[in-house]
Design a protein around this nucleic acid. Structure first.
Length: 297
DNA sequence: TACCAGGTAAAAA
DNA sequence: TTTTTACATGGT
């Protein structure tokens, strides 16, 4: 086991990030300060342990049993924890806002945690279409345990190849609708046979990513925006049709009821070029507050 | 029980 | 062209 370290642009409160992430998958018993996750480093499944050792400058310790790929491990860890995101300009923008000001102070140092691969992020987007996050999460758990690889008690997300080799009927046993099983398989096919190179997306413009991914069956406007904000972390991107975002923006920035997509964008306009980050903070605040209430009861 | 949940493609009109 | 519809599961 090797220990590596990476630095993240402060402020970064990793325990807070984990608290939010855990609220989406409460079934797992986890150490509140450590993220343990099975990832693939150049096709080798391995477990990474990420833990914040001190606040400023923010350093995260990584434990891995793949010392030969230190730079690759670090690159992936930086992506998962979103090390390169500088929250400061967003905080300055939100500081005086009556709603976002207090929320950003309460959630100071909160960054999104990202899946370890773009492929996984796109599959997440497909599973989360239309149904609740809880239902989608259960479906993914079954997918992972059926098609993924077990490493030291953790599951690495299935490879595109493995999913592309699986019959649609097998994918459906995880709880996917036939339609969605076809989407997942079609996406896996494209990635596995090289038709779609996901790594190139990182450096492409929002619009270029959009037009490329919209050609994939099963990826519509919502899924592409969802991928841009969550997978590529383009901080100004907002899935304007998103039910949860329309609700939460209405709840905190409107009169309480769900807004239209246009109304949602209007309310978020003061936070340009961090509208997506603003929406993320509202969702996180709602979720952590609700979680807190549930714990108290 | 019924209805909603962080949509999409395909059918019907 | 625009408008319906089917879809799977989990929580309330």
């Amino acid at each position: 086991m090797t220990v590596l370290s990476v630095s993240s642009i402060p402020p970064h409160d990793f325990e807070l990030c984990l608290r939010l992430a855990r609220s989406f998958s409460p079934d797992q018993i986890q150490d509140p300060s450590v993220l343990r996750s099975a990832v693939r480093i150049q096709d080798n499944p391995t477990v990474l342990e990420l833990c914040q050792v001190r606040r400023a400058p923010v350093t995260l310790e990584i434990q891995t049993d793949l010392p030969g790929n230190a730079s690759e491990v670090k690159r992936m860890a930086r992506r998962i924890i979103f090390a390169d995101l500088d929250l400061s300009p967003f905080y300055r923008l939100a500081e005086l806002h009556p709603v976002l000001g207090p929320i950003t102070r309460e959630l100071y140092g909160l960054k999104p945690i990202r899946p370890s691969s773009f492929f996984e992020m796109l599959v997440i987007a497909i599973t989360e279409q239309q149904i609740s996050l809880a239902a989608a999460h259960r479906i993914r758990t079954r997918m992972i345990e059926h098609f993924g690889d077990s490493v030291n008690g953790f599951w690495a997300f299935p490879t595109p190849l493995r999913l592309s080799e699986s019959p649609v009927a097998d994918l459906m046993t995880c709880g996917l609708s036939r339609r969605k099983a076809e989407y997942v398989k079609g996406l896996a096919d494209k990635v596995a046979n090289g038709q779609l190179d996901l790594d190139q997306l990182e450096t492409m413009s929002d619009e270029a990513v959009r037009s490329l991914l919209l050609q994939v069956r099963g990826l519509g406007p919502w899924s592409v925006d969802y991928f841009l904000i969550r997978g590529l972390s383009r901080p100004d991107r907002v899935p304007a049709d998103d039910l949860a975002i329309r609700s939460v923006v209405g709840q905190y920035l409107g009169r309480g009821q769900r807004l239209s997509p246009q109304g949602t964008m209007r309310k978020l306009s003061p936070f340009k070029p961090y509208r997506g980050l603003a929406a993320f903070y509202l969702l996180a605040y709602q979720r952590l507050t609700k979680d807190h209430v549930e714990r108290v009861i």
